[in-house]
Nucleic acid binder design. Structure first.
Lengths: 335, 335
DNA sequence: GAAAATTTTGCAACCGGTTGCAAGGATATC
DNA sequence: GATATCCTTGCAACCGGTTGCAAAATTTTC
């Protein structure tokens, strides 16, 4: 159906190789030939078939974008930045939604069938077994928003969740809170357990402060709200909570409001991510920002480096988080 | 690098065609042959190269998913449903982010280069010129969340925005509001102008009621908030506003709160979409739900029909909206 | 058990490109 | 102007599969 190289060659009265070369950067073609070919191609509306050429070149420019985070609103921005970032470099994102039944092996097989040049795994909860599958298939992979210690010799980009947890704890301690709570996502999610680890370590240094913790059943508004309602209704709640994710923190905020508590006067909340809704004036959540643009850019850069130099030495790029002061924490105490 | 069909053939001691047939449903192969081939393939870890086969079969099972809605949180769910819906049918979404410089022609060319079997355009604001480009390239296309009258003979799935606007107006009239406002997205967005058209037509039948309208600069929280702040500060605002999108309505809600107005006592808001945040208890927006699951399913179905029967007659599938009662509208008046 | 009908298999050409190699042309050197 | 050098071009093989066709193998029929 589509116009092929052969037709262009016939039209221009040249060999097929000549046409191929005219469309290949750096190939040996005279200007005259190039113009002749381009003219014929334009008349016919030809554009080369990327899939056919991949057969000989071994490059498809297809990058698998694998994720299981299609529920957390934070990730819409992540997808936006990844797709546009990849496109800018001439790469095409092949999206894989890891929800439900599809196991990792299944996905890897699929990605191999489509000869992706590389894979970016966008997830904080992806099983570590993934890394091995890709390595075995010899597919370059970058883990974004992932955990360093699971894959010390994988390419990896994100924040240090342990450090972020510690940062959160120091922030809350600095505000003079005496009873500090940690409200995590699912207890078995690595992001939650890492954040907890850093948080708890920092709290351990301050035995004079009261420290308690709880978990939500998943990373969602409803789970955060319901966990916080449980804490409030049980009584003896902390003066402030670090919610290990914005969407949980916002759920918690709504629970506090439902129980008639004033924030930040009666109780405080600190989130993590700085997703768009945190900045909405009717939410106004004080939170720790993940530098999402830096993370996505770095992931794409790392992908490109791997494509260019196949024996690229594995690398982890971790970025520090920053506090975004809004309205859900009391002011710092004066020294 | 990867295992090829030839290697499997040698290993199994059969011809290449035999291997190919063993992996093709409905091909003529004996059970004995199939087992022999499968054994060899398993030993070698072979899986067929989808791109190479596409060369002869003419099918890639790649579906372009084209969108420029990477800002509206509503669409994360849309992407979730589309990607999983396509995957379930063995199709692979190739994502195209239409932001910025990339013109439609550029995108169409790219999609053709990758021999996509079809394209789903996910956008309410995509230029109508798109349809032509795909038709010319003979690529099946489905427009989701699009406008019927722009492409009466294109495959199209969504709601009837004019009808939705009218439904909104009737709803507000039914609540006994005497001064009713319309707060749109950008004035030139087709979704906004269609919704306005339906809304205004319904209002025209009730000259006894006061009707006013305004627009936001884009479909975003900030734009909705700032537009509503403008209306409130100018004075003479309506008793209730239909915000032509949830994200705008939520922005408007926050503006009202900032100006000390109680919702729904002092002023009302009705949204459209029923995105996740509308249901958050600390937002609690009464809104008109777009049946997103039906829309995405229908779009995928329509795509599949087109792939199966190439001369599939164009079809528009429009779904009705339903009111989701929450807390931002006063109760219906009793007859 | 032989002939006819049916199924299975392999050959070879093809899908739409790329590329090493050698021949042909153009340019530079003397 | 002849020769050496470099650039351009076409040929043919190849990338990893599929498929029409005919030969081979199997099954059915009588």
């Amino acid at each position: 159906m589509a116009v092929t190289l052969k037709e262009v060659a016939e039209r221009a009265g040249v060999s097929r190789s000549a046409v191929s070369r005219a469309f290949t950067d750096g190939a040996s073609v005279s200007d005259k030939m190039r113009h002749k070919v381009e003219a014929a191609a334009d008349e016919l509306g030809y554009s080369p078939n990327a899939l056919a050429s991949s057969l000989t070149t071994g490059r498809t420019k297809l990058i698998g974008l694998v994720s299981n985070n299609f529920k957390n609103p934070f990730f819409l921005r992540v997808f936006d930045l990844f797709t546009s970032g990849l496109q800018e470099r001439g790469l095409r994102p092949l999206l894989v939604n890891l929800t439900g039944d599809q196991g990792p092996d299944e996905s890897v097989r699929m990605l191999r069938q489509y000869s992706v040049d590389g894979v970016i795994v966008v997830s904080s909860t992806v099983p570590a077994s993934f890394a091995g599958s890709f390595e075995k298939a010899n597919i370059p992979v970058v883990f974004a928003f992932a955990r360093y210690k699971d894959n010390p010799n994988a390419n990896l980009v994100g924040i240090d969740n342990v450090a972020a947890g510690a940062f959160a704890a120091r922030t809350l301690i600095g505000r003079g809170y005496k009873h500090i709570g940690f409200l995590g996502g699912p207890e078995n999610a690595v992001s939650t357990s890492d954040r907890f680890q850093g948080f708890a370590a920092e709290m351990a240094a301050r035995p004079d402060l009261k420290f308690s913790h709880a978990y939500s059943s998943e990373y969602s508004f409803a789970a955060g709200r319901s966990a916080m309602l449980g804490l409030l209704d049980r009584g003896g709640q902390a003066e402030v909570y670090f919610g290990a994710d914005d969407v949980i923190s916002i759920g918690a905020l709504s629970a506090m409001e439902s129980r008639g508590l004033k924030v930040p006067e009666d109780i405080g909340v600190l989130g993590l991510n700085d997703m768009e809704m945190a900045g909405w004036e009717n939410i106004n959540l004080t939170t720790i920002r993940q530098p999402i643009r830096q993370i996505t850019n770095a992931a794409v850069d790392l992908m490109v480096s791997q494509l260019e130099t196949p024996d690229h030495y594995p690398e982890a790029r971790l970025f520090p988080c920053t506090l975004i002061e809004r309205g859900t924490l009391r002011n710092p105490v004066q020294d």
